[in-house]
């Protein structure tokens, strides 16, 4: 009888004997009680400080609230997708420079990749907020968010794409070249599509990071979800509830993206 594939989680603890079963049952009940106590303590604190009042939460029954948050979400998505597209192509260019046969190009791109990966997004954002205007360049807020986020992410994307290219079996290039293809078209028609398929889950993960970085848009006064949440707060004076709901929205979106990434990874397996 063949056993099904087991991961470490299943094998680590073996089938329990009677004493162990009793112990597990007891600890299960205790932990349920502890978790319930924790939940009760949190809710009590909310109630004690008046945060459960209807005026803080009734705003979420209104359609206008959700529509306004929806606009903010559109802003977030626009910034994220803009940054995503820029970072993909920037990363692609950097990756190709990194694997090129020209030594100068290789070194330059390696340096740029390390620079992109080693500097926090916030610093890039401050660069676009404080330093770029010093040269007389006035950018709309969307670009003041999308460009720094893209610059911060393109190094990682370059390395992810490079790992995908390295994962494609060498035989593919050899076969393409022996068919008479040029190196350039062999790369773009044969190697790169396969590399891309390998790394789509990692790229989706990077998209999650890009999306998280767009929350710094408040620094440059761009209307994203966080910014609109702020306006709601100043209008309705409901800080805790609005920020909580906003955080939950972000968590849910990123959770969904991660699930998609896992599903894609499983399908290409």
């Amino acid at each position: 009888m063949k056993q099904t594939q087991s991961s470490i989680r299943d094998v680590l603890y073996e089938a329990p004997g009677p004493k162990a079963r009793k112990r597990i049952a007891v600890i299960t009940v205790l932990s349920l009680l502890a978790l319930a106590a924790l939940a009760v303590a949190v809710i009590r604190r909310f109630a004690q400080t008046g945060q459960l009042d209807a005026r803080y939460w009734s705003i979420f029954t209104r359609y206008t609230t959700w529509r306004f948050l929806g606009y903010g979400l559109t802003g977030t998505m626009t910034a994220a997708l803009t940054a995503g597209v820029i970072t993909f192509f920037a990363g692609l260019l950097l990756m190709m420079g990194r694997i090129s046969s020209c030594k100068v190009l290789r070194v330059l791109c390696t340096v740029l990749i390390e620079f992109s990966r080693g500097v926090p997004t916030l610093l890039f954002i401050y660069f676009f907020l404080l330093v770029v205007p010093q040269f007389g360049i006035r950018l709309p807020a969307l670009w003041k968010v999308a460009l720094p986020v893209a610059i911060s992410a393109c190094g990682v994307v370059a390395e992810v794409l490079r790992s995908g290219v390295n994962a494609v079996p060498k035989g593919q290039t050899e076969a393409a070249l022996s068919l008479g293809m040029q190196r350039r078209s062999a790369f773009f028609k044969i190697i790169f599509p396969q590399a891309l398929r390998y790394v789509i889950p990692a790229l989706i993960s990077e998209l999650v990071i890009v999306l998280k970085d767009t929350t710094f848009a408040y620094i440059v006064n761009y209307s994203d979800l966080m910014q609109n949440a702020r306006v709601l707060i100043s209008n309705y004076d409901a800080l805790l509830s609005v920020y909580l709901v906003t955080a939950v929205i972000y968590i849910l979106i990123n959770y969904a993206l991660n699930k998609i990434s896992v599903a894609v990874a499983r399908r290409t397996q």
Binding site: V208, L211, K212, D213, T215, F216, Y218, M226, L239, L240, Y243, L244, T246, A247, Y250, I251, L252, N254, Y255, N258
Partner: peptide
């Protein structure tokens, strides 16, 4: 792993 750092910080400092 899904909460943005800024959102968490704002919750901690403000909320």
């Amino acid at each position: 792993r899904n909460i943005p750092g800024a959102a968490l910080l704002i919750l901690l400092v403000y909320a």
